[in-house]
Every structure is written in C-alpha cells, then in structure tokens.
C-alpha cells in the first residue's frame, strides 16, 4: 500500500510529454531497466541475501547454493 498509493498519486499528477520533449528521458542513463554492468551484482546479491526480485532480474531458477 505504501508503494501503490504514492505511485497512484504520481500518476495522477503526471503531464503529457511529447516525443520532442524527451531529450532528458531518452538519455541512456535514464533507462528504467538495470544497467548491463549490474548483471553480476544482481546475481551475487540474489545468492547472498534472503530477499530477491522486483529489480528486473530473476527470483527463481538456478542453484545459488555456494
């Protein structure tokens, strides 16, 4: 709830941004996905911590037992 309600409020306050106004949003570092270089960081964090998921990676499959 603590995440969904602020997200809903944010949606209701957003403005329509035209394609030609997306200079900042289209910057490679503004991507909402993980960086390629974060791939292995996510991998070891998945193994070393009891929590996982909701970061664009997998949260099941594979062993991770070492």
């Amino acid at each position: 709830m603590l995440l969904i309600i602020p997200f809903g409020v944010m949606l209701s306050s957003c403005v329509t941004v035209k394609p030609y106004q997306k200079m900042y949003l289209n910057d490679a570092e503004m991507e909402l996905a993980l960086r390629k270089a974060e791939k292995y960081e996510q991998n070891f964090l998945l193994y070393r911590e009891g929590s996982s998921g909701a970061n664009g990676g997998k949260s099941g499959g594979g062993c991770g037992c070492n």
């Binding site: 995440l3 997200f7 941004v17 997306k22 900042y24 949003l25 949260s59 099941g60």
Partner: peptide, 23 residues
C-alpha cells in the same frame, strides 16, 4: 514467477516504474 511492471513518464525529467514480482 510473474513480473508485472507499470512505467510512467511523470514529467520531462522524471520517470517511474512500479514492479511486482511474486514467485
């Protein structure tokens, strides 16, 4: 695993995404 994402451009400088990832 099911991954649900909802992304939104909020302004010319801000974008957000909500991720739900039950497994």
């Amino acid at each position: 695993q099911a991954t649900f994402t909802l992304s939104q451009v909020v302004s010319k400088r801000l974008q957000v995404v909500l991720l739900l990832d039950p497994a």
